[in-house]
Design a protein around this nucleic acid. Structure first.
Lengths: 351, 351
DNA sequence: AGGTGCCGTGGGAGCGCTCCCACATGTGAT
DNA sequence: ATCACATGTGGGAGCGCTCCCACGGCACCT
């Protein structure tokens, strides 16, 4: 009759053991019911479920995590400062898709910002402790060491937007090339002559592909590509404004602009207004993302729609598969680990 | 020589036991070093730290959580749909303050939305499993059952914005009365005659207090309070627009508007523009929050500044104290558990 | 009748940590 | 020299779960 340790027994939450006693079965059987194993008779299952309900049993996640060596949690890692996260509708749309898909599972989502060096170190520590079963990476630049760290720690990960043509990580991307192409084609079809492009950060592969698509459309139309019409930006509103202002100074005859994101387009619009250009009369403007900004801009912005929410869902699907794969033996074939979703031009009053 | 269970030993992460062996000390001693206990000699501590570094030891959080019965995590619960969270700068500001304060601890922050019934049930389950040590509640309405649930589960919680004059939970609030008062005083001092108020949701205590402050200032100036000049809104932009339009229809002579939030002020501005009223020439406009919106509006918006980031920090302080208190015995005195931070009027071109 | 499976079940062992008791040693008062 | 007490330290027990082996019962074969 040893009544040794044990902080405040029999007052706290019920345990598996107590449920088992109540239902008149063994611990293992209750565990099987809780985890939805098929190898339990209907009668037993019913008895256990009744006991669970009566006692208000809720599994102890810490104990489960310890015994099973998994956390049932995944992280959405944003390698940007928080402010960018809130300023950019892209992130919240991804988050929505991810959240929706995840709400059908028992998995829990963590949102982690890793913009500063300090936050980065914290994240590394966090990952080293294996506090998540998998990681969703959004907005990763070409030279980011994070993917390597994850590989080294053997943590399943999915990346949104490939880092290069031969991405090694499972990824979900949209058809940036096709999107850039259709934007330029649209402006050409409008009869515009001097079509500029406000590019995103050049170390983002997707931004490159949008440029490629833009070039491709021009060439296909038999036009020369004037590289000085391509102004590099940084995906921010202020960057878009500046790039547009520069462009106007260099090429006063611009009559169409394809911006690498809606946020940049909003910046461009400011610069155009300040220069007294009317949209779309003097200059046609096209964005990318088709975010809420596009609809609310004055005039409403023509934009290339990316199915962002769907991309979030696809990322979760890939990641969960990845996690499941890792459980039994090792990596299977990397067949459909690179998902590319189509884009679509949404025409509005700005062009 | 029993080589029974144990999945993949000696290849995985190092454990406390292994660090202890390496440092030539006992398990307990390593634990003490890891947790910063003072009852360890300097020599021993150094030896352990060396072993930790060599082995790259990282504590297993699940094991710790199980043994110590705590999670080292707290949740920021937002009882709103995600869209409101992103649309309202208030939340991201709170999040920034909370994050900043928390980054100095080992605590991890979880962001949980509980807008829909489904999410609510999920949250209840989550809390019942005691997966967090404490909860931060923002934007809680007067009749929300969440605080009671938390009390019942004995989970420490801090609320942002009192629900009533006699809030029972520890809370952090801003001086809404004083803020409303100074906004109205300012408009009176400007010589405005018909000063309307676009109120926030009436089931939010802070919104009530802003109204009270507004009334108080008018009375103090010897003016009659016309209750029909107070239009209830819902803190959204669209709500502000509608309320303003109604107000203009009922009181065409309005020459000043105090809105219960910057977002509502932005809506009001739209309605005023549509009605052909100039700001501030025809109608002066004052907001509340002094968020990024205020600075970017055209014209820049006079607004009552709340120290939101500081409020986030204060919430964390309170919550951590609450959690610490709960550990040894029971509740101490509830002395300074209600924090009220000052507001300040920031005058810009809109008034 | 005896074998050969399979199904459903019970419970031991172990996950990696914290807590706490027991014990060795050191220091000062008597 | 003796006792009292503080200071460091080692390690047993236990947290609540999953995993897996072993076992009884039953149906079906020969």
């Amino acid at each position: 009759m040893a009544v040794h340790g044990g902080r405040g027994r029999s007052g706290g939450r019920p345990t598996l053991e107590e449920v088992a006693a109540r239902a008149g079965v063994g611990r293992g059987t209750v565990s099987r019911v809780i985890n939805g194993s098929p190898r339990v008779s209907d009668a037993t299952r019913a008895a256990v479920e009744a006991a669970v309900a009566e006692l208000g049993y809720v599994p102890n996640t810490a104990a489960r995590a310890l015994a099973a060596n998994r956390t049932d949690a995944i992280a959405l890692v944003v390698p940007e400062p928080e402010t960018r996260f809130f300023a950019e509708p892209y992130f919240s749309d991804v988050l929505r898709g991810v959240g929706a898909e995840l709400s059908e599972t028992e998995m829990q989502l963590l949102l982690i910002f890793a913009g500063s060096d300090r936050e980065r170190r914290r994240l590394a520590q966090y990952l080293a402790a294996h506090r998540v079963d998998g990681v969703l990476l959004v907005s990763v630049h070409a030279d980011d060491p994070l993917p390597d760290l994850l590989a080294q720690l053997e943590i399943p990960a999915v990346i949104s937007g490939r880092r290069s043509a031969d991405e090694t990580l499972p990824s979900v991307d949209s058809d940036n090339f096709g999107g850039g192409r259709s934007a330029a084609q649209h402006l050409i079809a409008q009869g515009r002559h001097t079509i500029a492009h406000l590019a995103g950060r050049l170390d983002v592969y997707g931004a490159q592909r949008r440029i490629d698509g833009y070039r491709d459309a021009l060439r296909e139309a038999g036009r020369e590509v004037d590289e000085t019409l391509i102004a590099p930006g940084d995906f921010t509103e202020e960057g878009g404004r500046r790039a547009m202002a520069d462009l106007l100074a260099r090429h006063p005859s611009v009559d169409a602009v394809f911006a690498g994101s809606d946020v940049m387009a909003a910046g461009a619009r400011q610069a155009l207004r300040e220069a007294g250009r009317r949209i779309p009369d003097d200059v046609a403007l096209v964005g990318f993302d088709d975010s809420a900004i596009a609809r609310h801009l004055d005039p409403p912005l023509t934009s290339v729609r990316q199915p962002i929410e769907e991309m979030g869902r696809a990322m979760i699907d890939l990641l969960l598969a990845e996690i499941a794969d890792r459980r039994p033996v090792a990596s299977r074939g990397l067949d459909r680990r690179q998902v590319v979703l189509p884009t679509e031009l949404v025409v509005r009053a700005s062009s």
